[in-house]
Design a protein around this nucleic acid. Structure first.
Lengths: 346, 346
DNA sequence: TTGAAAGCGCTAACAC
DNA sequence: GTGTTAGCGCTTTCAA
């Protein structure tokens, strides 16, 4: 530790002494608990103000609440997540709760570490966005603290789930492409790893739905999936892989806008134009998709509503609810200029 | 609190009992401190493994370290920040340190709250990215814990600073535009608020440099600044404001790529093409700028290096360094298709 | 080399 | 309505 003299923090004892009351009284005022006279409340509040006192979260964590909500974010680069965080913050505004975030990273090991970090820091509630760890691990966490999982469809007795109707969303995209006349429609998404969960995650559902709708239209022989995470880089590699096939797809459905941007880069590099040579669709309807020079067909899911709901469910659980809840938002297709009819076969 | 039976956490006492040693011994093993025999170390390690023990960060915070680095992020949507975080994580990989992030939000009040949250949670070190709070506040925090500030140029005796050479970067852009033949070059950036710091912040420096270079080329009468934060929305509004002027600028230098994207949206809406009608340049050289359909001229600054350096400086301070350090990276211009010669005057 | 015990700042049960 | 006090899980003297 640095040896420089660090000013001692103002503690509850300092406030008590300054106000001429007991520490209990101060603690009660802080938590707006019963059993304090208005006069005492005023004196304590004045002392807190004068001394610039703030509760020490770590000390609080030893006994009661930390007034902290922990969020697991899989990837800082995905522009859809800020929408969720905005919703969460909105729901938490006006409460004493603070949000802290950890980044999950690329593999399950990193994600596990990130989740542990939140648990070890004794947050009052935890929101996991599209976690990849196994279900047992989630239930293990949920048994210890109020938990909401976003992006998972499987219901659990221990935690709440908030998700988009990914089946509907994926179906809208694939039907849209088929409706435009495409048959060789490929998909980029869903990478299962060895220690990861394989079912019920949003990307798995989008990929399965893609395959199902293709089969329903007699296009099972055209099914082509490039397994890739929802990142720009993976989308790029996925598209390159798909473009090597012969004949190449006339349309690509990327499971996320971020992956679609990577695919777009690959398409440009290959000298292909969108949608004349290849149609491209994403998912999430991020602000980037709406940019006129990109104009990406995408699926809109209301991230702010999901974030708000997750926040509300967490607060409810913190207040004592133990039954579990499932909340789903309905997505809608936003067609833009990146999709169009396929070029007539040569 | 929820009333459901929560499983009690495994504590150091459980480990001690299981291994048949004292809690002191366990604590020493955990911190790899002196005074434990190899035999005891092994027994303790085995017990930790068997019981799945993890240290309780909150309890640790009461006495020693939390092994946590706190990061203040002004805005989750700015695609440049993940580069910094990648560098930081890389530097911290292999140590026991975990990164937690808080979002600063739009105003100084929100940012102050976010910083307080980190301080109250007793992180071992704090990295503030482009903070807007006053200098006193920064020094107040730095007096309490190891602090590194990113994006501020002013040196302090209490904290380290890591920044890009924003003067050079802005100069490169403005000279580039002048070199192309532009004279009516406008700038989007730098919004000072009432309670905010007004000097030494990266956006202020970019704005000042823009004005200086304009003057140096005898273009002081052409100086036009739309005051806006580095967000998409603010960039959009800033560009709209600039386009209302008559005659309108032939080139716009946005202080950040994110703001440039907003400006791009405004330009498209106004039916103007880039660069034929208006040239557009950004700053940060984010991946989006490189996208072929955007192809934005920008300034590259190495975020990963800044993040790594910030991490190294924090670890050094945690280990006891008290002298303060300043680290600067050198930016370079990346010209792309969004800038070109101005259209000949009608 | 080992362990007993004090105490970090706070909350909550309890006594007054 | 108010204050006393026993811990929460850990680190750190200090004594054995």
């Amino acid at each position: 530790m640095a040896t420089r003299e660090r000013p001692r923090r103002v503690t509850i004892a300092d406030v008590a002494r300054h106000a001429g009351v007991s520490t209990t009284a101060v603690s009660k005022v802080l938590r707006s608990a019963y059993g304090v006279s208005p006069a005492m409340r005023e004196r304590v509040k004045a002392a807190i103000e004068e001394l610039g006192y703030r509760p020490h979260a770590a000390a609080r964590a030893m006994r009661g609440r930390t007034f902290t909500i922990g969020v697991l974010l899989p990837d800082l680069r995905n522009p859809f997540f800020p929408d969720i965080l905005d919703g969460l913050s909105e729901q938490l505004a006006g409460t004493d709760y603070q949000v802290i975030m950890v980044q999950g990273g690329p593999d399950v090991t990193a994600e596990t570490r990130a989740i542990d970090a939140l648990v070890d820091r004794q947050v009052d509630g935890i929101l996991m966005i599209a976690p990849r760890v196994r279900r047992v691990r989630l239930e293990d966490v949920a048994a210890q603290m109020p938990t909401v999982v976003l992006g998972l469809h499987e219901k659990s007795a221990l935690y709440d789930v908030v998700h988009d109707d990914d089946e509907l969303g994926a179906e809208l995209v694939v039907r849209h492409l088929i409706g435009l006349g495409h048959r060789r429609i490929a998909h980029i998404g869903y990478t299962p790893g060895s220690r990861e969960r394989a079912v019920g995650v949003l990307d798995a559902i989008r990929a399965e739905t893609y395959a199902r709708v293709m089969r329903e239209h007699g296009l099972q022989s055209q099914i082509a999936v490039a397994r890739a995470a929802y990142t720009e880089e993976a989308g790029y590699r996925g598209a390159r892989e798909l473009l090597e096939r012969s004949p190449r797809p006339t349309a690509i459905f990327a499971g996320a806008d971020l992956a679609a941007l990577g695919a777009l880069r690959a398409l440009h590099e290959a000298g292909l134009s969108v949608p004349a040579d290849v149609s491209l669709a994403g998912y999430d309807n991020t602000r980037l998709a709406a940019l006129s020079s990109i104009s990406l067909t995408s699926v809109d899911q209301d991230g702010a509503v999901m974030g708000r709901t997750a926040g509300r469910l967490l607060l409810e659980r913190i207040e004592g609810r133990t039954s579990s809840v499932r909340f789903s938002v309905t997505p809608s297709l936003v067609p833009r200029r990146s999709t169009g009819p396929p070029a007539p076969e040569a």
